[in-house]
Design a protein around this nucleic acid. Structure first.
Length: 480
RNA sequence: UCCUCCUUAGCUCAGUUGGUUAGAGCAUCUGACUGUUAAUCAGAGGGUCUCCCGUUCAAGUCGGGAAGGGGGAGCCA
C-alpha cells in the first residue's frame, strides 16, 4: 500500500506474531472498556485491538465510540482470549475522527434493511453491506477479466444519446433549456430544440446495444459495461431508474453461440466471486438462512445461497423454446387446477412472471434459457426465423430474480429489418447510421444485455435490488 | 401506474371490547465490574402514537383523506 498502515485483512492473514503494526479503521464495538473491534472495510472480520487497563487516559477511552475512526500502533500478539487468533496490543491510540454515540445511527445490533436504506450513506459500515459491495466489486472485475481474456474490446457507448427509436423504455431528457416555460417554441407550440445544447432533443441512454453493433462490425467481439437509465415508473424489487448493464455484441455468432457465451459468462463471474469472496458469501448465506427461518415452511427456499451458486456453476442451464414452454405450462397441473392468475390457453401471449417462476422454480429448478419467442412480443432488431412468426430471441431466467439476461441474434438482412421497422412504426431515417451496418458488409451477429444489479442480487441472495447498488435511484428517490 | 399490507422511543416491536400517567428488548447516559466476543449487572433519561379531517363525553385504538415505507403485478435488465 501507499502508507505505513497494514490492512486488517492482511494482518489477520499473517502467520507470525511479535511485530509492530499500525492499523486504521472504524470502531464497531468497544467492549469492557478494553477491547476494540476495529474494521477497515478490507474484510468483514474485525481486528481485536486491546487497550490494556490503566494504560490509556479516560478521556481517550471515552471517545472510542461506535463509528469513531482511529489509528492504532502496537504489537501483534497471539490472542489471549478465544474467538480470534491474533490481536493488536495497543501502544498508542489516536482518534482521527470522533463519532457522537448519541447521534450515530448505527448501533452494535441488527438493523432492518429498510432502515439502512434510509441511511444509505452510512450503510457501507455494516457487515451486510460491506459484504455486498465487496462482492459487487469482484463481479465487476471478473466481467472485464472474462471478456478481456477472450479478446473482446471494451466499448464505451454514449450516455447521452439522440436516438429514441429503440423503444427499450421511457427516457430521461437531457437539456440545458430553461424549465420555466420560456424555452423557444415551434409554431405548433412544441419545444424547439434547435437552440438546445446539442441542437436537438437528447436523452440518457436506455441501452448501448445499437452502438455496440456498430463496433462489432469492426472488432468482431465487443462489450459495453456502463450505466443505463429508464424513466419507467417501476416500483419493484428488481427495477432501478439508473442501473448498470453489460452488453456483449459478437459478429458471426448465432443464437446458440450467444447462449453459450451468456452461460459461460455467468458461470465464470459467479465462480470468481465464490473464490474471491468466500467469507463474504458465507456471511450472507448465514444471514439469509436466519431470514428463511422466519418464513413459513412453504415459502422457504430449498437450497442455501452457497448450494444455489454451486449448482449454477456446475450444471447446464435448461434450454427450451417459447413454444415448448407454453406446452409445459399448458399441461401443468398448476394450469389445469387454475392456480395461475393468468391461465395459459394458447400460443402467442407473453409469459407472466408467475409462469416464468413456475418454469424456473417448480418445473426445472434451475436457470432456464427460453428461445424463439413470437415476433410480435419482441423488438424490431431480432432476427426473423424461417417459420416467419418467431424471432431468434433468448431470455435467461434465474430463480428468485426472473429475467436476468435478454438477448438475440440480430436481423442482419436489410430488407427484413426495414420491413419489420415499418411494421412497428419505427422511423428508419432516424436510424440511418444503424442501418448502414446492414448496407455495408452486414454479417450475422448476436448479443445480449445482462442487468448487473440483478446479477449481484442473484449472487448475494439479496431480495431487493435497491440493496445491491450503493445509491439507488428509483421513482421519488434520488437521495445522496 | 394498479392491488395489498404497514407507520407507536434512536432501532426492533407489544399495546385487550375506544376509558386515568402509552410499555418491553436493544441502543444512549451514569455507576459497578474487568480477557471481553452484539460483555455483564444496577439505575436514569428518552414519545405531538406519521400528518390532516371526522365520529364520540372520551381516539394510539373507529371512519375518510394525504405522505412515507414493505410485498406483489405491469414495463423490463
Amino acid at each position: 500500500m501507499f502508507n505505513k498502515r497494514i490492512k486488517i485483512k492482511a494482518l489477520l492473514a499473517e502467520e507470525n506474531t511479535g511485530f509492530e503494526a499500525t492499523v486504521m479503521g472504524w470502531v464497531r464495538t468497544f467492549r469492557n472498556n478494553q477491547f476494540i473491534a476495529l474494521n477497515d472495510g478490507s474484510t468483514n472480520n474485525n481486528l481485536q485491538v486491546v487497550a490494556s487497563l490503566g494504560e490509556f487516559e479516560d478521556s481517550t477511552l471515552k471517545r472510542l465510540t461506535t463509528g469513531a475512526c482511529i489509528k492504532v500502533t502496537g504489537q501483534v500478539i497471539a490472542s489471549l482470549g478465544k474467538g480470534q487468533k491474533v490481536e493488536l496490543k495497543a501502544a498508542t491510540i489516536e482518534i482521527l475522527g470522533d463519532s457522537d454515540a448519541e447521534k450515530f445511527p448505527l448501533q452494535p445490533k441488527k438493523h432492518s434493511l429498510e432502515f439502512l436504506r434510509e441511511i444509505a450513506h452510512m450503510r457501507f459500515r455494516t457487515n451486510t453491506f460491506g459484504a455486498i459491495f465487496r462482492i459487487r466489486h469482484s463481479l465487476a472485475f471478473a466481467i472485464h477479466q472474462f471478456f478481456n481474456d477472450k479478446g473482446f474490446v471494451y466499448l464505451h457507448t454514449p450516455i447521452i444519446t439522440a436516438s429514441d427509436a429503440e423503444g427499450a423504455g421511457e427516457m430521461f431528457r437531457v437539456t440545458t433549456l430553461p424549465v420555466d416555460g420560456s424555452a423557444p417554441k415551434n409554431e405548433d407550440g412544441s419545444v424547439n430544440f434547435k437552440d438546445d445544447f446539442f441542437g436537438r432533443s437528447t436523452n440518457l441512454t436506455v441501452s448501448g446495444q445499437l452502438e455496440g453493433e456498430l463496433a462489432a462490425m469492426a472488432f468482431s467481439d465487443v462489450y459495453t459495461f456502463g450505466p443505463t437509465f429508464r424513466a419507467e415508473n417501476s416500483n419493484t424489487t428488481r427495477h432501478l431508474a439508473e442501473f448498470w448493464m453489460i452488453e456483449p455484441e459478437v459478429a458471426f455468432n448465432d443464437l446458440e453461440d450467444n447462449m453459450n457465451l451468456a452461460e459461460a459468462f455467468i458461470r465464470y463471474v459467479i465462480k470468481y466471486a465464490m473464490e474471491q469472496n468466500k467469507e463474504d458469501l458465507e456471511f450472507l448465506a448465514q444471514r439469509l438462512e436466519e431470514e428463511e427461518k422466519q418464513k413459513p415452511q412453504q415459502d422457504r427456499s430449498e437450497m442455501g445461497l452457497l448450494d444455489k451458486l454451486n449448482f449454477v456453476v456446475n450444471n447446464d442451464f435448461e434450454r427450451l423454446t417459447y413454444t415448448e414452454a407454453i406446452e409445459i405450462l399448458k399441461e401443468s397441473n398448476h394450469n389445469k387446477k387454475k392456480k395461475f392468475q393468468y391461465l395459459i390457453e394458447g400460443w402467442g401471449v407473453d409469459l407472466q412472471s408467475e409462469h416464468e417462476r413456475y418454469l424456473v422454480e417448480k418445473h426445472f429448478k434451475k436457470p432456464v434459457i427460453l428461445t424463439n419467442y413470437p415476433k410480435d412480443i419482441k423488438s424490431f432488431y431480432m432476427r426473423l426465423n424461417e417459420d416467419g412468426k418467431t424471432v431468434a430471441a433468448m431470455d435467461i431466467l434465474a430463480p428468485g430474480i426472473g429475467e436476468i439476461v435478454g438477448g438475440s441474434q440480430r436481423e442482419e438482412r436489410l430488407d427484413k429489418l426495414t420491413a419489420r421497422m415499418a411494421e412497428m412504426h419505427i422511423p428508419a431515417e432516424e436510424l440511418n447510421w444503424y442501418l448502414d451496418t446492414r448496407r455495408f458488409g452486414s454479417c450475422p451477429h448476436a448479443g445480449f444485455g445482462l442487468g448487473f444489479e440483478r446479477l449481484v442480487q442473484f449472487v448475494t441472495g439479496m431480495g431487493n435490488i435497491r440493496d445491491v447498488i450503493p445509491f439507488p435511484r428509483y421513482p421519488k428517490s434520488a437521495e445522496f
